[in-house]
């Protein structure tokens, strides 16, 4: 059980004011898996994401990455989001957060900044030219792989919605992650686009050997493409397992699927 864990949450509780947004949540993501975190609106999914990425410090519990606790309450380990990203967890956002004044190319290139060895002096005076060149080549390669190279000089926000989603994933990949977190990647997409996105996620997982943890509302995407599913409601884990197990779970049907049956 220990060997394959890439991410493990142990009894994570997050209290926001008087609301317990995440309550005693434990989950794990293994190497090579696509794991989905689902639940009705306000169930605490995004809060859980914000705990994993270091935006919030949980009020209780600990989070382990490759079996090392990087967030915990005792002893207190409270990394900033950039430190978490540097460690190897990259994310996308529910509402797309691309850098809007920058080109498609620069959006991806800038995500490579943190791994560069240059300092501000050597970067300004072009003393680290080789490194800059390598970063640019890697960026071009990544854009080519994601079919975005033809748009490289366009403003990121001028792309159609679906491509912006894809660019955001490409930007996350540019940080060389070991785990990818997707926050509602199919939000606002039609069934056709959603299916393409699912295939795209599987393709990324295989090409980059990258386990994926995603929050999603589109049941078809979740059921078709994820290996395991965690269901939370009011911050509490109510079920987990393979898509078919979860679908058959009465608690889940009551809390969630039952409501959206006629969708």
């Amino acid at each position: 059980m220990l060997s394959d864990n890439i991410l493990r949450l142990e009894h994570v509780t997050m209290q926001l004011g008087g609301v317990v947004a995440v309550n005693d949540l434990s989950l794990e993501v293994n190497q090579g898996e696509i794991v989905a975190l689902i639940g009705p609106n306000g169930a605490g999914k995004t809060t859980a994401f914000n705990c994993i990425t270091g935006v919030y410090q949980p009020t209780e519990g600990k989070i382990l990455f490759e079996n090392n606790a990087y967030i915990s309450t005792s002893p207190v380990i409270d990394p900033t989001p950039d430190e978490v990203t540097k460690m190897g967890i990259a994310r996308t956002f529910q509402n797309i957060r691309l850098w809007k004044s920058m080109s498609v190319f620069d959006n991806v290139l800038t995500a490579k900044h943190m791994h560069a060895k240059h300092n501000v002096f050597s970067a300004t005076f072009r003393l680290s030219h080789a490194e800059e060149k390598r970063m640019r080549e890697e960026t071009a390669e990544l854009l080519k792989e994601q079919d975005l190279l033809q748009y490289k000089d366009d403003l990121a926000t001028s792309l159609p919605y679906g491509l912006q989603r894809r660019l955001e994933i490409a930007r996350a990949l540019a940080t060389d992650p070991k785990l990818l977190l997707l926050d509602e990647p199919a939000a606002g997409m039609n069934p056709q686009e959603t299916r393409e996105l699912g295939e795209f996620i599987v393709q990324i997982k295989e090409q980059h050997h990258l386990p994926v943890l995603m929050i999603e509302h589109h049941m078809d995407l979740v059921m078709q493409f994820s290996d395991r599913i965690y269901v939370i409601d009011f911050g509490r884990l109510i079920a987990s397992g393979t898509p078919s197990e979860v679908q058959a779970n009465q608690k889940v049907i009551d809390a969630y699927l039952g409501v959206s049956d006629n969708e």
Binding site: P81, A90, M114
Partner: peptide
């Protein structure tokens, strides 16, 4: 030279969206 270097791009990223910049590893 500075604003067109990697650091200049990081500055612009912070200007455009601080949350995204931090999430992409920019301190």
């Amino acid at each position: 030279l500075l604003v067109n270097s990697s650091y200049g791009r990081a500055f612009k990223a912070i200007r455009d969206d601080e949350v995204a910049a931090e999430a992409m590893g920019i301190n």
